[in-house]
């Protein structure tokens, strides 16, 4: 019984590390800044949530469930708010997108963004 849970926990962590490395590979392979932000979303979302789940399975207790649950919420908030803020900051800094990116909808918005994402 105990060993089944331990195997599950290890499987979660290894799967998480695999997903994380795919996201990081995306950071190298994807062609422009905005596409790379999506690679980060993979690493920061699924790639960190799975190891956290594995950690909880290995040390199950109410206290740990609360701590790891909070850590997961903060991690997802970091990924979401940080990603949006970084995308916006990169856009304001004039980071170029790949040439084939269609941007008709955004051209209209440039220079008149409302309140930010922070």
């Amino acid at each position: 019984m105990n060993t089944v849970v331990e195997v599950l926990s290890t499987a979660c962590v290894v799967a998480g590390a695999l997903v994380f490395s795919v996201g990081a590979l995306g950071l190298l392979r994807l062609r422009d800044f905005y596409a790379r932000l999506n690679g980060i979303a993979v690493s920061a979302g699924l790639g960190t949530a799975l190891p956290l789940l594995g950690l909880l399975l290995r040390f199950p207790s109410v206290e740990n469930a609360l701590k790891i649950g909070l850590a997961l919420v903060v991690q997802l908030a970091t990924a979401a708010v940080g990603g949006t803020a970084l995308a916006r900051a990169g856009y304001l800094a004039g980071t170029p997108a790949a040439s084939e990116t269609r941007r008709d909808a955004l051209a209209e918005a440039s220079g008149e963004e409302g309140d930010g994402a922070g």
Binding site: S43, P51, G82, G90
Partner: peptide, 26 residues
């Protein structure tokens, strides 16, 4: 290239650190 990409990379280094701590704990 560019500040935005450096920031994105630094973010991932940090997320990687969190996961490394988890694996070390196990």
């Amino acid at each position: 290239p560019g500040k935005a990409d450096r920031g994105a990379g630094a973010d991932v280094v940090f997320f990687g650190f969190v996961s490394v701590v988890i694996v070390l704990g196990l």
